[in-house]
Simulated scan of single mutants.
Amino acid sequence: MEPKHKRRVRYKGTHPKKYNEKYKELNPELYPETIEKVIKKGSTPVGMHLSIMVDEILEFLNIQEGQIGLDCTLGYGGHTLKMLECLNHTGHMYALDIDPIESVKTKERLLNKGYGEDILTIKNCNFKDIDLVSNEAGLFDFVLADLGVSSMQIDNPERGFSYKKEGPLDLRLNPQKGIPAFIKLQELNKNQLEQLFIENSDEPYAKEIAKNIDSYLKSGQLISTTTQLYKIIEKSLSFIPIKERKES
């Protein structure tokens, strides 16, 4: 007997509310018409990432068949795919990504386009370890370092990168290592929090935000979600006129 077609999970109402039920956002490449419509509006479809300056990058790198290349941040794989196309199934492409969740999805996405381990090696590591990769792969003919997080990481509330929708205050690109942000907050005192905001984001109101967070935690309450932290920061900046807050 042929296996029955597996239907997608049903949800209440006309549209799914939970991110893990949003089938189009979990697998955007399966819905090209929706992707095209969103891109035409000037937006990035939820669940995917649009690579920037692709033509300019390829022109600058001038990739030749048979070369060895490195993409320091694999992400959704947009840049990597275009560089693989330039190699035309010759040479080899290495790609790094510290995110074990998205890199697995991207590996499968590129494999479905015909780029397997014979031409592409994906390593789950930080780009700071490029020297270790080079020790194994040898010298690279070209390197692309488009550093930063990707849209699909921010879009997923379960990753804890955005307050657009409530999610656990995590902030780890690799949730298998380290500790989530809400635990880290409990370990830092007011001065350490202030220094953290200054060093990592040049926050001009680091002192006010750190003071409010510290007071909240000392009252015995946890800051465990992104929206909780957002509300505390919003309260910390309430002395700033709304117009100035929107412009900053």
Score class of each variant (00 low, 15 high):
Pro3Trp: 04
Lys6Phe: 07
Arg10Gly: 13
Gly13Phe: 08
Lys17Ala: 09
Tyr19Cys: 00
Glu25Val: 00
Leu26Asp: 03
Lys37Gly: 05
Lys37Val: 11
Lys37Tyr: 13
Val38Glu: 12
Pro45Val: 03
Pro45Gln: 07
Val46Pro: 08
Val46Phe: 09
Val46Arg: 10
Met48Phe: 10
His49Val: 00
Leu50Phe: 12
Ile52Cys: 09
Ile52Leu: 13
Ile52Asp: 07
Leu58Ile: 05
Glu59Lys: 08
Glu59Leu: 10
Glu59Pro: 03
Asn62Gly: 06
Gly66Thr: 13
Gly66Gln: 03
Asp71Ser: 05
Thr73Gly: 01
Gly75Leu: 02
Gly75Ile: 07
Tyr76Arg: 07
Gly78His: 04
Gly78Ile: 01
His79Gln: 02
Thr80His: 00
Thr80Asp: 02
Leu81Lys: 04
Cys86Tyr: 10
Asn88Phe: 04
Thr90Pro: 09
Met93His: 03
Tyr94Ala: 08
Glu102Met: 13
Lys105Arg: 14
Lys105Ala: 12
Glu108Ala: 09
Cys125Pro: 03
Lys128Asp: 13
Leu132Gly: 15
Leu132Pro: 10
Val133Glu: 06
Gly138Glu: 07
Phe142Met: 09
Phe142Pro: 02
Asp146Ser: 07
Met152Lys: 03
Gln153Ser: 04
Ile154Tyr: 01
Ile154Gly: 03
Asp155Leu: 01
Glu158Leu: 12
Gly160Pro: 01
Lys165Asn: 15
Pro168Val: 14
Pro168Phe: 11
Leu169Gly: 00
Asp170Ala: 05
Leu171Cys: 09
Leu173Met: 14
Lys177Glu: 15
Ile179Trp: 02
Ile179Met: 09
Phe182Arg: 12
Ile183Leu: 15
Ile183Val: 15
Leu188Ala: 04
Gln195Asp: 15
Leu196His: 06
Phe197Asn: 02
Asn200Pro: 06
Asn200Ser: 14
Asp202Trp: 08
Asp202His: 11
Pro204Gln: 05
Lys218Cys: 03
Gln221Asp: 10
Ser224Cys: 12
Thr227Met: 12
Gln228Pro: 00
Lys231Arg: 13
Ile240Phe: 01
Pro241Glu: 08
Lys243Arg: 15
Glu244Gly: 03
Lys246Leu: 15
Lys246Cys: 12
